[in-house]
Computed example of a mutant assay.
Amino acid sequence: MSATTTCTGRDAEDPLVAIAARVGFTLVTGVPDSPLSEFASALSALAPARPGGLDYVPGTREDSCLAVAAGEALAGGRPLVFMKSAGFGNCLDVLTSLVQVYSIPVVLLVSWAGHAGRDVPHHNVIGEPLQALCDAVGLPTRVAALDDAADLELQLMAAAEAAARTSGPVAVLGIPAGL
């Protein structure tokens, strides 16, 4: 993990940064993939230390990002963790042995490579069963197209509200454009 960057979302070029700020996330952390690379770049480009904004902690492993988000939630914040679908496998232990066991409200935004088997073979291996994997570990999910800003905002807001209401994690499975 590197230094924290803070932003308000007002000056972000990527619409997802502004959406995250409007939804009320206090911290964003994650490991980008191609569909979320502009989001990560926009977060990284914002000036640090703006009070009352959205903190960004870039990550290199999804499990570490989820642990950071758990700390933010326990401190009273509203965290968002973004990752690629293959990274979901990396965070299963932290998800099931920390976040779920201790009822920590965290929202995951998972870029769903391999959705419905309509991607390259190595994405399809985890992409096709991703919904079933979430179901198997009792992780509630919502689905949105990553290129539909209005629906993505609606699903992230609903996930954040559900996470707060249930004191547990909720994932938004984001379908990349073209899938």
Score class of each variant (00 low, 15 high):
Leu43Lys: 08
Pro48Arg: 01
Pro48Ala: 11
Pro48Lys: 03
Asp55Ile: 02
Val57Ser: 13
Pro58Asp: 09
Gly59Ser: 13
Glu62Tyr: 11
Glu62Phe: 09
Cys65Met: 11
Cys65Asp: 12
Leu66His: 04
Ala70Ser: 07
Ala75Tyr: 12
Gly76Leu: 07
Gly77Ala: 05
Gly77Val: 02
Pro79Cys: 07
Leu80Ser: 13
Lys84Val: 10
Ser85Thr: 15
Asn90Trp: 02
Leu92Ile: 10
Asp93Gly: 14
Leu95Lys: 04
Leu95Trp: 04
Ser97Asn: 06
Ser97Leu: 08
Ser97Tyr: 07
Val99Ile: 09
Val99Asp: 14
Ile104Pro: 00
Ile104Gln: 06
Val106Trp: 00
Val107Asp: 12
Leu108Asn: 01
Leu109Thr: 12
Ser111Ala: 09
Ala113Asn: 14
Gly114Leu: 08
His115Cys: 06
Asn124Tyr: 13
Asn124Gly: 10
Ile126Leu: 10
Gly127Ile: 05
Gly127Phe: 04
Leu130Arg: 00
Asp135Leu: 05
Ala136Glu: 11
Ala136Leu: 07
Val137Ser: 08
Gly138Asp: 02
Gly138Asn: 00
Leu139Gly: 03
Arg142Gln: 08
Val143Met: 09
Ala144Glu: 10
Ala144Lys: 02
Ala144Val: 05
Leu146Gly: 08
Asp148Arg: 08
Asp148Ala: 04
Ala150Trp: 12
Ala158His: 05
Ala160Gln: 08
Glu161Gln: 13
Ala164Arg: 11
Ala164Gly: 09
Arg165Ile: 05
Arg165Gly: 06
